[in-house]
Design a protein around this nucleic acid. Structure first.
Lengths: 154, 154
DNA sequence: GATGAAAAATCTGTGAC
DNA sequence: GTCACAGATTTTTCATC
């Protein structure tokens, strides 16, 4: 393992998560390091992959995608290629915004967005039910998402 | 409804999602607007909530949190305060990094991270099984997450 | 109301110590 | 790790459509 983040790195990450848009100089002050030092540490964490990406989180509802559905799949375990073929097909559906794979009573979870219920029905019929090697599906309509635990004891 | 994003806004969003770290001047060029115009549109989309946040995505595994578990809950429907009390308790657990609520065969989903299996077991016993008003739990261990659909017809 | 050009304020990233 | 600085970037201003 290459250079786990130290206590200072974790302090920096905590500040970064708490206020991602703050300029480096402000973050440096809050984390108790100088801006140049902060910059080099951020750079190292980007290189080592600790900071995987900087991204904008879009509110699909504000953009007119009113429906988000969480779909849980089980696949046909008798076909060794089922998994790869399913993944390839699922990634081809533009409305699928997330794919997770699991160990447990469910194999995969997809997050799918749609403009409205009619659109959802169309996606479901034409793009979801046609995915290969599916043995079982369960759909949940997303009501709300709360993600805040950044207080995590980093 | 206040000012849905127009075609230009959507072009900007597409560029922003495709390359979140590009300077505004570059994004402006790609989206076919001037930097000043781009800036005003981004500002407006932040104000109206279309751009909900800019955030750093942290690789918990690179940080030494090796285990991520997706927990699905059903709550006791006979108690009208069950939902609020559950949410309040769940939010208090620092290792819970996401909470989603659903309409369907499952009421809630929590994402929980842990340093290793021993740590997971401890969290599960002390913080998860003690959550109030739970009628049913199912746990899935996350193997991988793929999120890329940004090609979405914005 | 929204735009573009350009100035002003601010920030980032680097080199020297 | 710190300090100082050049260059790049963001944000405001102002005239214009």
């Amino acid at each position: 393992m290459k250079s786990m983040p130290d206590a200072t790195d974790r302090r920096i990450l905590r500040q970064l998560l708490a206020d991602p848009e703050a300029p480096n100089a402000v973050l440096a002050g809050r984390a108790g390091v100088t801006p140049a030092s902060l910059w080099r540490r951020l750079e190292r964490m980007r290189e080592t992959g600790v900071i995987a990406a900087i991204q904008s989180r879009i509110d699909w509802r504000a953009l007119g995608w009113e429906v988000e559905v969480s779909l849980r799949f089980n696949l046909d375990k008798t076909n060794p290629r089922a998994f790869d073929e399913f993944m390839a097909a699922a990634r081809d559906v533009p409305e699928v915004i997330e794919i997770q794979t699991f160990l447990g009573s469910v194999d995969l979870r997809l997050s799918v967005i749609a403009r409205d219920m009619a659109h959802w029905q169309q996606i479901y019929r034409d793009r979801i039910l046609t995915l290969p090697h599916v043995s079982d599906i369960d759909a949940l309509m997303l009501v709300s998402t709360i993600k805040d635990s950044t207080e995590l004891a980093l």
